[in-house]
Nucleic acid binder design. Structure first.
Lengths: 152, 152
DNA sequence: CTATATAATTCAGCGATCTTAACTAATAAG
DNA sequence: CTTATTAGTTAAGATCGCTGAATTATATAG
């Protein structure tokens, strides 16, 4: 990687941190959701069907911890938990409508600064940013696809 | 904002979430730092001189909470806490070398996927992404500057 | 000098999450 | 059928961070 791009990435990371982390934590506190809950919510909103151990691996905690966390979220009506017909030891975790709503709000809150930022660009600049981000999104999909199909 | 750009931002947000949140939480657990600690660490690494109440406002918690959290971080050698000569009620919080090291590692860990992603781009694509990100960084500085100079 | 306001700390108590260990249920292997 | 493995749950105990209230020290106002 060329040195100037390396610096750009670093600056971009800093900007991301400074603007999204605080927003995210404040949002969590205001809505009375813990950070683990909100993280689980967002993970579930991106990976439609998860099980307990998958979440445990994702966040680096035991199944017991996930089970307890999810139990509360089921009671709060954020998550629907059902048996997997293929293997009834598995639980299939899916967000409820309410859960999806909260997850989306959380994401919007976290990246609000990015939307605000883009709104002050000229049309030409918007196009430039749009194509660059789309390029990254497409490349990321290429990296993800081979792996995401290799389990179950 | 044009509809296609709006979708691009949304996709980009999703990608960010999916790839950085898990890394970040795993990093925190592996290194035995709590999420609040790591968040404080990162905030301090971006805003060289902070006081207790400033951090409290940033994260939406009481001064007592910040004081206790920082006390631990001082004991761990991550933060240097000293009196403000201008107003000795204030404490000036600055990261130690060790604290800075951890903060940087955390940021690198969190955005590792972005570096990996950029590494598979062609030179031409890299230039494209570089200029788009730099554009956003510059615009963000314009938004921030008026505010960031208004205190102390 | 006295009174008030501000910044930070300390303490007791609460709630949340984590871990380990024991347990139930379902699947896979012999 | 018996045994071992896998997925998830439950319970007990520990830790952590937060709050509210009381306290100390500094700064400002009258």
């Amino acid at each position: 990687m060329s040195p100037p791009l390396e610096k750009t990435i670093k600056d971009w990371m800093n900007l991301n941190m400074r603007n999204s982390l605080g927003n995210f934590m404040r949002f969590a506190r205001e809505k009375n959701y813990s950070l683990p809950q909100l993280s689980a919510l967002i993970h579930l909103s991106q990976n439609e069907e998860c099980n307990i151990s998958g979440l445990g691996t994702e966040f680096g905690v035991t199944n017991a911890a996930v089970s307890q966390l999810l139990e509360k979220m089921v009671q709060q009506g954020l998550v629907h938990r059902s048996e997997d017909p293929q293997d009834r030891r598995n639980k299939v975790l899916v967000l409820t409508e309410e859960g999806n709503k909260i997850a989306n709000e959380g994401m919007i809150e976290r990246h609000k600064w990015l939307s605000d930022l883009i709104n002050i660009l000229t049309e030409e600049e918007k196009d430039h940013v749009d194509s660059a981000l789309r390029l990254l999104i497409d490349k990321a999909a290429l990296l993800d696809d081979p792996k995401s199909q290799s389990e179950s």
